[in-house]
């Protein structure tokens, strides 16, 4: 189900433009500003010239964006894609994340039958329908989220994880629908709900207003879940931006974040262009959000599973 060999780098993007759509990506006061949350701060390695097969190391050594040290790729992979020198948290694919967080072999995927379409007949420099096929081939995913049921240290949970490599982990109709169904399922079955978010894109602009409405749809489902007394743990990973941050990712009863993840509404470049001041070094990082009171705990990747299990036990009835 999940490759044992994890790859610290996401599959190389089809192009940098595959990146961003975000509810927050507007520059209203200076509409002349390009907005990108990439900003060189994302864990977005430069596109490699040659397409590599997933899970196969591209080289023996990689350079860590956190400490700039050259580290042994296998060692990084063996530590859940965390840098052995500086604890930098590299990208993790959705399937690898399932293997890291859920008990072995317990994940039962759901709603895989929901597939994206192209309601706007959207084309920028490339038709969205083509882009979808390319992204599916490149990532092995059908859309940017995996949803299903699984066990975390023998506790049954409803589980979702977005993959920031699939059109920047952006939310279109399929992501919204899978999450809404999962939340409703968790409500009916009285299951704790865990959503691990990674999205530089927010709401997916290729599906226009329908993407924006997914924010309302999933938030409404979460409101019902909340009303039924369900426990929702939201885990924020690098990056969680725009419409994803401004909907389900921020609505956890508990909000955990991996260290040094980029988390926020508007992209730093948009903000810089709008207000024209230098931003603090730690701006929009997990640590920044912790300081300002928006997350409960910063949790390192090796501790994530235990921390989730412990929180479930505290909130169990």
């Amino acid at each position: 189900m999940v490759s044992a060999q994890s790859n610290p780098n996401p599959p190389s993007p089809t192009g940098p433009e595959s990146a961003l759509a975000a509810a927050g990506e507007v520059a209203p006061i200076t509409p002349g500003t390009a907005s990108s949350v990439a900003d060189g701060r994302l864990d977005e390695p430069p596109a490699s010239p040659v397409q590599k097969k997933r899970g196969v190391p591209e080289g023996l050594w990689i350079k860590c964006p956190g400490c700039s040290e050259t580290v042994y790729r296998k060692e990084v992979a063996g530590r859940l894609n965390v840098c052995p020198k500086c604890d930098y948290h590299f990208y993790v694919s959705a399937t690898d994340r399932v293997a890291q967080v859920l008990d072995d072999g317990t994940f039962e995927p759901m709603y895989e039958e929901l597939r994206p379409t192209d309601p706007l007949n959207f084309a920028d420099r490339r038709p969205y329908s083509e882009r979808l096929i390319a992204e599916q081939r490149r990532t092995g995913l059908t859309d940017a989220v995996l949803t299903g049921i699984g066990m975390i240290r023998a506790r049954r949970v409803a589980f979702a994880v977005t993959d920031s490599a699939f059109i920047m982990g952006s939310m279109g109709s399929v992501v919204g629908e899978r999450l809404a169904r999962l939340v409703e399922h968790a409500t009916q079955q009285c299951l704790p709900l865990i959503i691990i978010s990674g999205s530089g894109g927010g709401a997916r602009m290729h599906e226009g207003i329908l993407s924006l409405m997914q924010m309302a749809k999933v938030s409404a489902a979460l409101a019902r879940y909340h009303g039924s007394g369900g426990l929702y743990i939201s885990v924020l990973t690098n990056p969680t931006m725009g419409g994803v941050a401004a909907s389900f990712a921020s609505l956890g009863d508990l909000v955990f974040a991996e260290p040094k993840a980029l988390i926020g509404f508007a992209g730093p470049r948009t903000i810089k262009a709008t207000i024209g001041i230098e931003l603090p070094e730690d701006f929009q990082t997990s640590e920044f959000l912790l300081k300002h009171g928006y997350i409960d705990r910063i949790v390192t990747r090796p501790n994530l599973k235990s921390e989730i299990a412990r929180a479930i036990d505290y909130c169990g009835k």
């Binding site: 509810a23 409101a223 401004a246 207000i275």
Partner: peptide
């Protein structure tokens, strides 16, 4: 044109409040 993209807006939880507001309005 959009919610304000600024330093203070982020510090005071721009993403959080938009999410909360939809959550509240839905019920």
């Amino acid at each position: 044109p959009g919610a304000f993209p600024g330093k203070e807006a982020e510090e005071r939880g721009q993403a959080q409040v938009i999410a909360e507001s939809m959550f509240l309005m839905s019920r």
